[in-house]
């Protein structure tokens, strides 16, 4: 009951923190899409470079988020951004890269060789093959990568409250420092619900970019 009271009394705060959270994740994953999709496409040209890039991505994802924030403080302090919004976005950007790059790379390399040949045979240039055939066919899988990046990082972003980035994590962290389980639960539940709703919305988007009759991944 305390929980419901909390939500009723702090509607504005929860809403504001939720928007902050969404803005942080959207900004970081948006950047990761802008960098990750072209990278995923580019590394299809060379197996060795692809393996190296994907390995590097896996290494990054193994760094605990709290450690990553700590590592960035001295570096970003040089430009006066040691804590706050910037390191949070950079960390989540780094975590989001791997699923997006990997899914883009896998989807493009998995395009049916017969379709590649058909695209060459009708006289498409390399660039036309990419944006008329290969990327559209890869979109469902790329979207799946974006989806997992978003869902994972909605959770990761909660920790960013500790470096002063705001978001729903600040409700949890205040709950911890005040030994108030109600606030901890309120923050945690909101993070979970946000993740579930976003996952569902992105799933619908993923289905929308899948051509009828083609199996969705």
């Amino acid at each position: 009951m305390n929980l419901i009271d909390y939500f009723l009394q702090n509607q504005d705060l929860v809403l504001m923190r939720t928007f902050e959270h969404i803005a942080l994740v959207a900004c970081a994953v948006g950047l990761a899409i802008l960098v990750g999709v072209p990278t995923g496409v580019a590394i299809t040209q060379n197996k060795l470079i692809a393996d190296m890039v994907l390995y590097l991505g896996s290494v990054v994802i193994t760094i605990p988020s709290i450690a990553l924030f700590g590592l960035m403080i001295p570096i970003l302090s040089q430009i006066g951004q040691g804590i706050g919004y910037v390191p949070a976005v950079i960390a989540v950007f780094l975590y989001a890269l791997l699923p997006i790059v990997r899914n883009t790379y896998t989807a493009i390399t998995d395009v049916d060789p017969a379709l590649r040949e058909a695209a060459r045979g009708v006289g498409m240039s390399a660039l036309q093959r990419l944006y008329k055939v290969e990327i559209p066919l890869s979109l469902p899988v790329i979207m799946a990568g974006v989806r997992s990046a978003v869902v994972i990082n909605i959770g990761v972003m909660a920790i960013a409250a500790y470096i002063g980035a705001g978001g729903l994590g600040s409700i949890i962290s205040r709950g911890i420092s005040q030994s108030d389980p109600v606030q901890i639960f309120a923050g945690a539940i909101t993070v979970s619900v946000l993740a579930i709703i976003t996952d569902g919305a992105l799933f619908l988007l993923q289905k929308k970019v899948t051509p009828p009759g083609q199996a969705s991944h």
């Binding site: 049916d112 017969a114 379709l115 040949e117 058909a118 695209a119 045979g121 008329k132 055939v133 559209p136 066919l137 051509p211 009759g213 083609q214």
Partner: peptide, 8 residues
């Protein structure tokens, strides 16, 4: 393999 583009 026919090679019709499934996305079109």
């Amino acid at each position: 393999q026919i090679g019709l583009f499934p996305n079109m």
